[in-house]
Write a protein that binds this DNA or RNA. Sequence first.
DNA 1: TTTTTATGTTTAAAATACTAAACAATCCGC
DNA 2: GCGGATTGTTTAGTATTTTAAACATAAAAA
Lengths: 182, 182
Amino acid sequence: MEFDLGARLRSLREQHGLSQRELAKRAGVTNGTISMIEQNRTSPAVGSLKKVLDGFPIGLSEFFASDFSSRQKIFYDHEELTRISDGKIAYRQVGRDLTGKSLQMLHEIYAPGSDTGRSMLSHQGEEAGVIVKGKLEVTVGTERRILKAGDAYYFESHRPHRFRAIGNEEVVVVSACTPPSF
Amino acid sequence: MEFDLGARLRSLREQHGLSQRELAKRAGVTNGTISMIEQNRTSPAVGSLKKVLDGFPIGLSEFFASDFSSRQKIFYDHEELTRISDGKIAYRQVGRDLTGKSLQMLHEIYAPGSDTGRSMLSHQGEEAGVIVKGKLEVTVGTERRILKAGDAYYFESHRPHRFRAIGNEEVVVVSACTPPSF
DNA sequence: TTTTTATGTTTAAAATACTAAACAATCCGC
DNA sequence: GCGGATTGTTTAGTATTTTAAACATAAAAA
């Protein structure tokens, strides 16, 4: 989905009942700048946009937050779960086709010593997991920790992350993410 | 707190293990641009910043949301999980405050014979779960099935549903739903 | 109507960001 | 050590944004 910066700003301004000049004065820019931005005739400098948004006020994060509000098989025997092989890690996905769905749940089995690779994973959404068996080293951004059975994690998926099995027994994890990442 | 755009970008890039040139190539800008941005010597055009962030990838909103996520707790010992008592069923939620979040994960322990009640549950969203231990009877709409360790379920939460522990051992389930239901 | 006031748009000049290439520093293999 | 590759930084030139002021239209007041 395309983000229409100009339209978003115009909508915001009108919701606040401000003219381009009023907003410009508050923001410390000229009305022409606001006009150009609203028509998408320029890609404003972040600094300029920030000044403008301070006139409402609203933060950059909220401004860019596009509001994603966001008969089928129900029961699955373990062997029915969709297998997604990825080297030494055996993923089993709950459910078949997740198109249109917003939740993905995986039953993961890590062979001893296996990991998700040195290049860190990163995607949209949130993910969480509970360790069922074994020891799993979880790295998120600059933070790292070893989790054991019963422990859990929860983070936003855009943060680079990596999983690694510790010790010489297999590791079992039940994880979920939203929206589905593959 | 002042938002340090340059530092934020540098940190992100380093977490991903990319050089300025590698990122520049992915993003379709020059390495000099990235250098200047990271030093806060320019206030990049929104369009340029977007191109750069697409190289990770990460959205503008998350980029500006910054420290929110980095201060958030990620790892949870089993005893740290938030307990949500509900009669004979012990829920432990992964994560503390889920406001603004779209994923909820629970570690559930059913005492022998316990269930979620005769009046069926129903709410918005989707939910899924994996049985870790014991036997669980799951009823969704008119369908009913007994699941054992390793088995799983997935359905849309608006369908009336009910869970019941079968046999005389406790049942352990890891479940997830989106959006959080309580 | 005529005038005043306010609106959004456009334009030439000034300010700023971006590129391409050179520069400096560091690391690695030989 | 040396040479080559890779890193982040800087610089001069080009491209883009921003300003200040003029323009055009519309609504309100006289």
